[in-house]
């Protein structure tokens, strides 16, 4: 298992980052940025899938709430009806999670690559040798230069700029992807997560090598751009919650039957509302 991890994930990321370092003026900060862009390009189809899944999820929210109300006392029935609704709407509930899952191993591998390639400790440098490809170019590059702007990439940012950038960019992205809801419990969860995730990542940034925080910041910025291009600003500038679900006590709209999209027909991405 450890060998699979090393051969398939860690070593390619490690060696690619060293090659990028040699191309980008022996600057590991630039190499991390380039690596982030490459990873985001590779995972682009998954990101689009995630955004579309979230968007579809938002469109069925009113119907979901109807079901929740209708089957409040029958969890099993509610579960069945929910899955049926997802199926009708062409939503894969796991679609929101997969891109996130794909990024976890990348983060871990990148973190290890940063510490080992930059020789944070002698043990890290010693453990690096077996993981390098047999290329004189790669061997001539290590250990890499750890300086980037004001940062030592093996250490947390002492000026506290990166924690703010990571937390801020994550909040922005989170705010854009948050699915508007009228369910008070869901609203409370959304509010909590909107604050908790950026704070958690900012806290990690205080602790981990700043090279990883550079990756997070750039990755978030790319995520924000992609999100904007696909769905616009999303929940960022929407001050009001969407109309309560049809049929709810607060609704002034007449309930209309839900129509699932025709199967096989691709839904177009919505451009930002101006």
């Amino acid at each position: 298992m450890a060998d699979l991890w090393n051969v398939l994930i860690f070593q390619p990321i490690l060696n690619l980052s060293i090659i990028l370092y040699s191309i980008l003026f022996n600057n590991f900060g630039l190499a991390i940025i380039a690596l982030t862009i490459i990873i985001r390009v590779i995972t682009y189809p998954l990101t689009i899938k995630q955004i579309k899944a979230s968007k579809s999820m938002a469109t069925v929210q009113p119907r979901m709430q109807e079901l929740q109300k209708k089957y409040a006392r029958d969890k099993q029935k509610l579960s069945g009806e929910t899955m049926k609704l997802y199926k009708e709407a062409g939503i894969n509930p796991v679609g929101c999670i997969v891109p996130m899952l794909v990024q976890f191993p990348v983060w871990i591998a990148l973190y290890q690559a940063i510490l080992r390639a930059l020789a944070a400790t002698p043990e890290d440098l010693l453990a690096l040798f077996p993981r390098l490809y047999s290329s004189p170019l790669i061997h001539s590059m290590v250990p890499l230069n750890e300086k980037f702007l004001w940062l030592n990439l093996t250490e947390p940012d002492r000026l506290m700029i990166l924690p703010v950038l990571v937390g801020g960019s994550m909040w922005l992205q989170q705010k854009m992807v948050t699915v508007p809801t009228t369910d008070p419990r869901q609203q409370s969860t959304n509010r909590m997560m909107l604050m908790m995730m950026p704070l958690m990542f900012a806290a990690f940034t205080l602790q981990f090598a700043s090279g990883l925080a550079v990756y997070w910041t750039i990755s978030n910025v790319i995520g924000i751009v992609i999100q904007y291009l696909v769905t616009g600003w999303g929940g960022l500038f929407k001050k009001k919650s969407p109309a309560p679900p049809v049929g709810s006590p607060h609704s002034t709209t007449k309930a209309v039957p839900y129509e699932p999209p025709p199967s096989g027909k691709k839904r177009k991405s919505r451009r930002p509302v101006k």
């Binding site: 929101c96 999670i97 996130m100 899952l101 976890f104 983060w107 871990i108 973190y111 290890q112 510490l115 080992r116 944070a120 400790t121 002698p122 043990e123 890290d124 453990a127 969860t189 997560m193 908790m196 995730m197 958690m200 990690f204 981990f208 990883l212």
Partner: peptide, 23 residues
């Protein structure tokens, strides 16, 4: 979904902390 992500983050933190060699 959020609980899942939070658990994964905790796993991430433990993983990265344990995978690197302390001095």
């Amino acid at each position: 979904q959020y609980i899942f992500i939070t658990i994964m983050l905790i796993i991430l933190v433990v993983s990265v902390s344990c995978q690197t060699a302390p001095a």
